[in-house]
Design a protein around this nucleic acid. Structure first.
Lengths: 253, 253
DNA sequence: CGAACGTTTGAGATGACTCAAGCGTTGTGG
DNA sequence: CCACAACGCTTGAGTCATCTCAAACGTTCG
């Protein structure tokens, strides 16, 4: 069932997958635009996304929405809700979706009995933080086209990593307004940016399908550096040669 | 020594604090603007910030810097580097600072031997993710004055939580350029925004000291909602009454 | 056929940026 | 002790990106 689980760093082995599988008490189908959890709500369950797409988001007082993350199939959506007890944001379904529920009591048992799996669940929640950092960079340093390209490059990489779509083409059931809420742009401006990218031959976003016509341009425009996705397992090829034994070269005490 | 450690959610008890204390192999003083760790570098140690301020940041190809977080005294700065093996960003000192180093081998021993402390370290890294979400909202949904106010409100809350400063006045050794890099603004625009906030009687940022003249205005302008800081220990007073037993009201399978 | 929704386009306003210059303070070397 | 460089901050002028408001269009669905 959880074939795509943990597809990135440190994938689960068969035994671990089976352990998590056994902890599932319910599989549920939800309709598009269903709200799954609200900010501040006490949660007794965490969610694995089996199929479809979810978003996590906050709304400001004026009702403006900001996406915090896009969840793709295989994601452990809100495992941080187990240590945290409640969420600081909302979770909702973008498309029809299938989710699996795991009671927090089971997670507690697993983490006590299985240090290896506990470690990997920790890792998963850290990947979440790493994704957030990618979003901070996108919003803080890129303009409209840059943000859209960065988001699409990230999403392409994540979907490829779980075997959904190719680097040139994947399914993404968002509206332009959703895309804007992810990238901090209005829907009007999102439309204009997409048009520009389309006529520049970079990419096309239509009917929930993304086609990347010029991957190099997408990466360049989005200043996309996938380091933060931790797609490789720590044995990192790029940028730094030797392992650092000590941080800093500051004056010692 | 680690008096301010874990000052927010789920503080450490005396025994846990002692355990972490014993794991420290070195305390080091570093000068302002020292780089402590670089993106991609393999790390064998994680850092506790004892005194001073650090930043975590990424640079794009043009050399533009985006802050990802501000670290205040008491923070476990890069404990995610233990499961992750390497960082996806740089860490550097904003001011003179004292840091304590804990070898990853000790963290491994602790997490295996002490499930309670392991859980709290997990929590700490999750708070990091929660902070990131606050930053995503700030950058995605707020304008210049909003971002500055949100950042200052967050920082005031965090510093108060560890006993440094008051809600009206605290020490923050950043330049206006730093503040801009945190908020996704140029230093020129940061200067103008600060001037506007100053003459509106909201707050003053001068010589590394922040004075909040009108806390209500600060919070209003920054659309600041501290939920994401998890300052209270899970027993949440606000916004939601009953515990949710099931997420969503979607059609069941 | 009409309503709802997502998308597109236009026009005008404004927030934020860039480039550039000037100012005050601090630190340093002659 | 002075001169000068370096740094952080401020201000001005002009440009550009993005927003807002508004209208129109195509598709889907009832």
């Amino acid at each position: 069932m959880l074939t795509r689980l943990g597809g990135r760093i440190s994938p689960l082995n068969a035994a671990e997958r089976a352990t998590l599988d056994r902890a599932i008490i319910e599989v549920r189908s939800v309709g598009a635009r269903t709200i799954l959890a609200r900010k501040g709500e006490r949660l007794e369950f965490s969610t694995i996304l089996l199929n479809g797409f979810l978003s996590r988001h906050v709304d400001d007082r004026r009702g403006q929405r900001q996406f915090l993350s896009l969840q793709v199939p295989g994601d452990l959506v809100d495992f941080h809700a187990y240590p945290m007890r409640f969420l600081d944001h909302d979770v909702s379904a973008l498309s029809e979706a299938q989710i699996a529920l795991i009671p927090h009591s089971s997670i507690a048992e697993i983490t006590e009995a299985n240090a290896g799996l506990a470690h990997k669940m920790w890792l998963t929640t850290l990947l979440d933080a790493a994704l957030h950092r990618g979003w901070i960079f996108r919003l803080g340093r890129l303009d409209g086209p840059g943000r859209i390209c960065h988001f699409l490059a990230e999403t392409a990489a994540r979907l490829c990593a779980v075997g959904l779509g190719t680097p040139e083409r994947f399914f993404l059931p968002l509206t332009q307004a959703d895309l804007g809420e992810a990238c901090g742009l209005t829907s009007v401006h999102t439309s204009r940016v997409l048009k520009a990218l389309r006529s520049a031959g970079v990419c096309t976003f239509r009917d929930g399908t993304v086609s990347i016509e010029d991957p190099a341009a997408l990466i360049r425009t989005g200043h996309f550096d996938p380091t933060y996705l931790y797609l490789n397992d720590g044995t990192r090829p790029g940028s730094e040669a030797a392992a650092a034994k000590h941080p800093a070269s500051g004056k010692s005490t």
